[in-house]
């Protein structure tokens, strides 16, 4: 029997409509706000060519934002920890190490990568997903060895793991030839590509839709998982298989997002909290709300960096999201365990 009513959260439809209009607002803003070469602010949709580029940016930012939002939602449910997110636990660092290794492999022996790209296999996605999944496995192992009891210890472990993997990736990039080093380190700061590789887009879209359906189908079980391992088991939740599903889902989503836009920080942390604030705590609402909030944060950050005046183009998107999300994270941490746990 599904739990049919959502009590005490009146106006569910209205809240959802508000969320959708926020999505529409940031997308329209991204499509019509730009900067001219001399630094002046331009308003207007531009010609077909410019409009196509802007739509490309909207699509890549939206896909990465949705993937990160869903990944954060899955991670917070899996670890029963509201501070969890792919960036904070080092999962995106693991994914970027995977991408770095793939691009080094491509430079060293180009033959097999050419075959793969001809077959339509997005190698950067494969590398990122493998890196993310391996990191997820390590984080999970750390959480379980501590009995999943101490949420701060898991977060701390994830942060250190992320720093470690990030340094490894940086070391590898340092050893690269200068021209590729520059492009990779720009990618590490987060980017929003305006020209998209079709296989990456298809893989990411598939990941978001599939994990969304999985979360929707298991929504009440995920709600019940929050009561704790033993109680959830006794409530009839197949805890082991549900955790496997959430873990793999979060890994694949983080990998896709990193392959698209680089390791953009804090989107996966902020999006589920924003969705919870707007739609309430039920998984069946959040599984739609968290990816939409991810779109709002990611596209919104892309708009913000157009608005920030600089002398050398737009600031990297990762800088914007880290500033907003980092402050939010510290604020939650400061409110104390009882407030956020």
């Amino acid at each position: 029997m599904p739990i049919s009513r959502i009590r005490g959260r009146s106006g569910g439809g209205r809240r959802f409509a508000a969320l959708l209009s926020m999505v529409a607002f940031v997308i329209v803003a991204r499509l019509c706000v730009a900067r001219s070469l001399d630094g002046g602010l331009l308003l207007g949709f531009g010609d077909a060519q410019i409009s196509a580029l802007r739509w490309g940016a909207v699509l890549s930012a939206s896909l990465a934002g949705a993937a990160l939002g869903m990944a954060g939602l899955f991670l917070q449910a899996l670890l029963r920890n509201p501070l969890a997110a792919p960036g904070i636990l080092g999962v995106t660092s693991g994914a970027s190490l995977g991408v770095t290794l793939v691009s080094i492999g491509a430079m060293a022996g180009g033959g097999w990568t050419a075959v793969a790209s001809e077959a339509g296999v997005p190698l950067e996605v494969v590398g990122a997903v493998i890196g993310a999944l391996l990191t997820m496995a390590i984080v999970w192992g750390m959480a379980m060895r501590r009995g999943g009891i101490d949420p701060i210890a898991v977060i701390l472990g994830g942060v250190v793991l992320g720093a470690l993997l990030g340094s490894l990736a940086m070391g590898l990039q340092w050893a690269m030839p200068p021209h590729s080093r520059a492009s990779v380190s720009l990618w590490m700061m987060g980017r929003v590509p305006e020209v998209l590789s079709m296989p990456v887009v298809v893989a990411s879209a598939l990941a978001v839709v599939t994990t969304g359906l999985y979360g929707w189908a298991n929504a009440t079980a995920v709600d019940a998982l929050a009561t704790g391992e033993a109680e959830a088991r006794s409530l009839g939740v197949p805890v082991a298989s549900l955790r496997r599903g959430l873990l793999v889902g979060a890994g694949v989503l983080s990998g896709c997002a990193v392959a698209l836009c680089g390791p953009v920080a804090f989107v996966g942390f902020v999006a589920p909290h924003l969705a919870r604030a707007i739609l309430g705590p039920r998984m069946n609402a959040l599984v739609v709300g968290a990816p939409l909030c991810g779109v709002i944060v990611m596209v919104g950050a892309d708009v913000a960096r157009v608005l920030i005046p600089t002398s050398q183009g737009r600031v990297p998107i990762g800088v914007v999201t880290a500033l907003v999300g980092g402050v939010w994270f510290l604020k939650m941490l400061g409110r104390g365990r009882r407030a956020w746990a």
């Binding site: 029997m1 599904p2 739990i3 009590r7 005490g8 029963r80 920890n81 509201p82 009440t220 079980a221 709600d223 019940a224 929050a226 009561t227 704790g228 033993a230 109680e231 088991r233 006794s234 409530l235 009839g236 939740v237 919870r276 705590p281 039920r282 365990r337 009882r338 746990a341």
Partner: peptide, 26 residues
């Protein structure tokens, strides 16, 4: 089964938590 220590990770309302009992694994 009810554990000794109530979970800290729940965001639901009291009623929604009790409705999970009526769900009972589907």
């Amino acid at each position: 089964y009810v554990d000794q220590h109530p979970s800290l990770a729940i965001h639901l309302s009291a009623r929604e938590v009790m409705e999970l009992g009526a769900w009972r694994g589907g």
